[in-house]
Design a binder for these strands. Structure first.
Lengths: 193, 193
DNA sequence: CTGGAAGTATACCTACCGGTATAGCTACGG
DNA sequence: CCGTAGCTATACCGGTAGGTATACTTCCAG
């Protein structure tokens, strides 16, 4: 099965558009950013945007997909650098901290997109679902490799902690939300057998 | 210190407006719902809305505040019905399940509002913060009453689990996200001393 | 050297947004 | 019984949204 969404041709101008859109969408929200603004900030005409991406919605999807890809790569990098599966579980939370430091913190782009794009058939829904399922599966893998009982259940718990940390470090009020989550995760893998 | 926001006079028409707005804002998003639509669905003229609430932003704030109040009341009710502080901690997750069953599940209204209203000085920001701080304090109270060590730390962990459960039951993919969180919470209070 | 792809510049379209203005109706308390 | 609060009805405003149309340029590859 091939991709149902046509990949836009990534010319230099398109690259600039996508980078600019990604920054603006994340910081000011998707509905809060108009196509004209993106064009102006990217130093590009609206026509170029529509020639490359077809519609604002397609541009939004491209933004979410690319961001998702990059985030997964960061997680993978941290996981692979870990000494063993248990450390790898904890390393996922390190990757979150690194990700936030690099990208700024306005919460999870997927969750935010879901909040704004409420149509029941909007692609953002399945993208968000796929991302969270991926992380859950990743946790489950690592826990199984570590020989931990009830790996599937523990993976869900870690996912909840992770998402809670993402949300709370956006909302504020808990200075070290991610570190707290990592602490909890470490305790989980240390106690478990 | 008195309230900085003027309470709108709750006439019958205003009540209908706020109820309608609450439903529409939550289901379709705040930016996704126009004042004209609210007026039409509430069986009211736009003038009435602006006479009672002054602006869409004020209406949004009224929506968030009322929803917050009601949610806190539900939590309190469940907590007070619990046999002891430890059960009360778990009961918070029961209250979440009841709340979701009653209100439908499109995630946390505060978090969604934050995603849409990105202005750094928008009242939605402090409302969200206050709500989460309140829950954290509630957890901390109960854990201290239960004589659990490191109540403050445990309270943060419970908050993360709670928020993770809210997010994930919206995103989907984990059928019983709230029950999983409750399970983890029970284990926490059972193990702790 | 030529044709097409990529891009700029500019103007335009329709739809809808939050918000305002004017006029008139109804119900109720002093 | 009369004034005012609360409301309806309708029309309007400026701004902005996503998206399209036309004409001109630039640049590279066959």
């Amino acid at each position: 099965m091939t991709d149902t969404v046509v990949e836009p041709r990534m010319t230099r101008a398109a690259r600039r558009v996508l980078d600019t859109a990604a920054r603006l969408f994340y910081q000011r929200g998707i509905t809060g950013v108009g196509v004209d603004l993106i064009a102006a900030e990217a130093g590009v005409t609206k026509k170029t945007i529509y020639d490359r991406f077809g519609s604002k919605d397609n541009l939004v999807v491209a933004y979410l997909r690319e961001r998702d890809q990059r985030w997964r790569a960061v997680v993978d990098r941290h996981v692979e650098a870990a000494a063993d599966p248990r450390e790898a579980v904890v390393a996922v939370f390190d990757s979150l901290e690194a990700w936030q430091r690099a990208m700024g913190d306005r919460g999870c782009a997927m969750i935010n997109a879901r909040a704004e794009l409420t149509g029941p058939d909007h692609p953002a829904r399945e993208l968000a679902l796929a991302q969270k399922q991926w992380l859950r599966a990743r946790f489950a893998e690592l826990l199984e490799e570590a020989g931990i009982d009830d790996a599937a259940d523990a993976a869900v718990e870690l996912l909840l902690l992770h998402e809670g940390a993402v949300v709370m470090s956006d909302v504020g009020g808990i200075a070290d939300a991610v570190e707290r989550a990592r602490h909890a995760a470490r305790r989980m893998v240390d106690r478990a057998e």
